[in-house]
Amino acid sequence: MKKTIVAGLAGGMAMNLAMLLTFRTLGFGWDGKGILLTSPMQSHKLIAVWTEIQPLPLVVNTPLPIILGLMLFGIGHAFIYRSVASAWPAGVLPRAMRMSGLIFFMTFLFWEFFTPFNQFGEPLPLIALELSFWVVIATAEGIAIAWVMERRTA
């Protein structure tokens, strides 16, 4: 149980750091001038949600609940890993890639389809960019969880 929680915390931390490096640094920018907000093809509705309509998303003004929530998702993902990993080929990398794929397809691909595409009318090229960010995030989390879970303890 303890190892699963530690793996989840590592996964949550990896997810937060990868989001910081992708969405925050490149996508939205530290000054609000990232490609997802400044691209001329971007949906005005999405830009308004992130920059104008009050209250702004928590992650913009009060990110701590989101950071902590992602840590909890990491713990949940680690418990999922624990329940399915024995059916996957042995080894950190094969299991990490399967976990990353599971996270990406079950969470992030669904999110992009349902919210930015469906609700905000975001154009497909920017959704493709966001999906590449999500691949990085899912991979970071999957590797962190698999690495902790597959380590042999003395």
Rank of each mutant, 00 (worst) to 15 (best):
A7P: 04
A7I: 10
G8N: 00
L9Y: 02
A10Y: 08
A10Q: 06
G12Q: 03
G12S: 10
M13I: 15
M15F: 13
M15C: 12
L17S: 01
A18R: 03
M19N: 01
M19H: 01
L20Q: 11
R24E: 09
T25M: 10
T25S: 04
G27T: 09
G27N: 09
W30Y: 07
K33H: 08
K33G: 02
K33Y: 00
K33C: 00
I35T: 01
L37G: 00
L37N: 00
T38F: 00
T38W: 00
T38M: 04
S39D: 15
Q42C: 08
S43Q: 06
H44G: 14
H44R: 15
L46F: 15
L46A: 14
I47D: 04
I47M: 12
I47G: 05
A48I: 05
A48T: 11
V49E: 13
W50A: 10
E52M: 14
I53K: 15
Q54T: 12
Q54E: 14
Q54Y: 12
Q54A: 15
L56S: 09
P57E: 04
P57M: 11
P57I: 07
P57S: 11
L58S: 13
V60M: 09
V60R: 04
V60N: 03
T62Q: 11
P63V: 05
I66V: 14
L68G: 09
L68Y: 05
G69C: 06
M71W: 15
M71G: 12
F73P: 00
F73T: 10
F73N: 13
G74K: 09
I75G: 12
I75E: 07
H77P: 00
H77L: 14
A78F: 01
F79D: 06
F79A: 11
Y81N: 03
A85M: 11
A85S: 15
A87I: 06
A87E: 12
W88D: 07
P89H: 09
A90P: 10
A90H: 12
V92I: 14
V92A: 08
P94A: 09
